[in-house]
């Protein structure tokens, strides 16, 4: 029953915290101002133009993207962990994150518009998965260890390519842009980038949500999963592609943000046990809340923005240690 009250608490937080995040920032707004900007008919006098602008054009897309990215990274991490039956699997395991970052860096180097950068990231992220799947297939099937090894190799390859892009970049303007973006930040969010990036994250999350019960069987050995009537190859293919699409999409919008994919699913497991019917939904919610908190802190704590990836690591690592000590390890 501890699980049920935790679930209620999380849902309540899911409603309250975005509102709080809209109020917070270098230019603090009251609840009244935020509400009047969001839904003018409720109020007799419309909110000032500047308030509406801040809420609708700057903070709302960013809050939504933070939640979407967090939910996506959390669920993708949970899916990879279940799929490879490996508690250390993260969206980086398959080299997707590094793959996507190479695509985006290349896009920036070529001076493509932001939509083009995102497309590049997505393409090279999926290319990384394709390479991993191709390398790890031996005798028509791919073992978990081969897959993770292939992921490491692919990741190394793509990070070398990223370095190559940085090396070739103009140190005056392109190099700082690439470097800052690689650090991970949501500062560039606009309504357009949100509209472009969200469909893939939502679709990928939906696919993983669809497979959440089967993911339980996927944590067992392949033969065992197959003997439970699961089409192992098909399930693995769809879930890998879904998780890769989420990761590539998030990376192309926010850069490399570590820790979320590892931390969030484990936090879910510690709270709700290992059943993926609960891990997947709670990873979505926890991921959204976590990224929202991180991003809100990143943009309001100091005068200039702190890259999110620094914060996720600085907050994530101690929090993870705290959780480990508190619950006596992963709720195994």
């Amino acid at each position: 029953m501890k699980g049920r009250s935790a679930a209620v608490l999380l849902l309540a937080a899911l409603i309250i915290s975005p509102a709080a995040a809209l109020m917070a920032g270098r230019f603090p707004l009251s609840a009244h101002e935020v509400l009047s900007a969001l839904y003018p008919p409720l109020f007799s006098e419309p909110a000032p133009q500047m308030v509406t602008n801040i809420v609708l054009n700057i903070r709302l897309p960013r809050v939504l993207l933070a939640m979407l990215a967090g939910a996506g990274l959390g669920v993708a991490g949970g899916a990879f962990q279940a799929l490879f039956s490996n508690p250390l699997a993260t969206p980086d395991t398959l080299g997707v994150a590094t793959g996507a970052s190479f695509g985006a860096a290349l896009g920036i180097l070529l001076g493509l518009p932001s939509a083009g950068v995102q497309l590049c990231a997505l393409a090279s992220g999926l290319l990384a998965v394709a390479i991993v799947l191709f390398v790890s297939r031996i005798r028509g099937s791919s073992s978990v260890i081969m897959m993770i090894l292939a992921g490491m190799v692919t990741s190394a390859l793509f990070s070398a390519l990223v370095s190559l892009v940085k090396f070739a970049a103009d140190p005056q303007d392109v190099l700082p842009a690439v470097t800052f973006w690689l650090m991970g930040s949501l500062s560039g969010t606009t309504r357009e980038s949100l509209l472009f990036g969200s469909p893939l994250i939502i679709a990928g999350t939906a696919v993983i949500w669809f497979y959440r019960w089967r993911l339980n069987a996927m944590t067992l050995s392949d033969d065992e999963a197959q003997s439970l009537g699961v089409d192992v190859k098909k399930t693995r293919f769809f879930v890998v592609v879904a998780a890769a699409a989420i990761t590539a999409s998030v990376v192309s919008m926010c850069g490399l943000i570590g820790w979320v994919g590892l931390l969030i699913p484990h936090a879910s497991r510690m709270l709700f046990g290992n059943d993926n019917r609960r891990v997947i939904p709670s990873s979505i919610v926890l991921g959204a809340l976590f990224m929202l908190a991180i991003d809100t802190a990143a943009r309001s704590a100091t005068a200039s923005e702190i890259p999110s990836s620094i914060l996720t690591a600085m907050i994530g690592a101690p929090f993870f240690i705290f959780l480990l000590r508190r619950t006596g390890g992963i709720k195994a």
Partner: peptide, 12 residues
């Protein structure tokens, strides 16, 4: 099918 007993990394 009852395979040879081996625990998975995630205990249910």
């Amino acid at each position: 099918y009852v395979p040879q007993a081996r625990l998975s990394s995630f205990a249910y």
